[in-house]
Amino acid sequence: MNSSNLLSIVTFTYALAAFLYIVSWVFKKQLPGRIATWIAIIAVIGNTGGIALRWIESYRLGIGHAPLSNMYESLVFFAWTIGVIYLVIERTYQNRIIGVLATPLAFMAIAYASLSPNISDRIQPLIPALKSNWLIAHVVTCFIGYAAFAIAFGISLIYLLKRKKTGDKDGFFNHLPDFSTLDELTHQMVTLGFLFLTIGIITGAVWANSAWGSYWSWDPKETWSLITWFVYATLLHARMMRGWEGKKLAYLSIIGFMAVMFTYFGVNFLPGLHSYGQG
């Protein structure tokens, strides 16, 4: 089996896990949830295997490099980080509700990688500009940050839904974690994401400085990552202002994740992009 096949199977495994999390939530049943956890664990293991296999394959092709060099590989890694962070949260808080949003996100990331006609899953040799250890540090840290923001986004959505639906007695939202727990969780994910986004931007800057001699040149991708950083810095400070409670912060977290998505995908539609942004 090659890595592409394995990762296709992983895609469906994530889909199955997502389905079971949703079933468990909608029908308030424990069993599907417990199975979902196991399926999610299998998906993450398969995802890990797929990444490792792809790495080995690149060496067999004689162009060995860490599988983090293009859109396909970064999306696969993105799914992996979402999966891992989610499972840690599930274990820590003994609550499966976030899986209802986290596993579909992981599924969408990896499904988009496999199915989009614009994204090639071929293993390509590295162009000279990408031959840098800073690149690996850059991609890894950015995507850990993105994954944490993705989960914060999911929790914020749950938060807003719950806010809307409180009062309606047997809605799906009554056995969700309480507001303060959701708030705290969002904050933890945002701080985790902010730390890694910061490191990601910094390693990117160091890489740019070692390849082109300037650590910052305001190209659209760089600028959008900074915009994202500003939004989350705003969120961190807004939390300390009186009058800014959960709901507004949840909106900011959603806007922040939009900025993440735009940094990642949308920038490709802007004029004047660096070559390394393209899959």
Binding site: T223, F230, V231, T234, H237, M240, M241
Partner: peptide, 24 residues
Amino acid sequence: SVRLTVIVLLSLAVTSIVGTIIPQ
């Protein structure tokens, strides 16, 4: 005030978008 921080950070975020849409 942190209020000013929030305003300035948001202004930086919003205005920065312009330069990514209009080539510099």
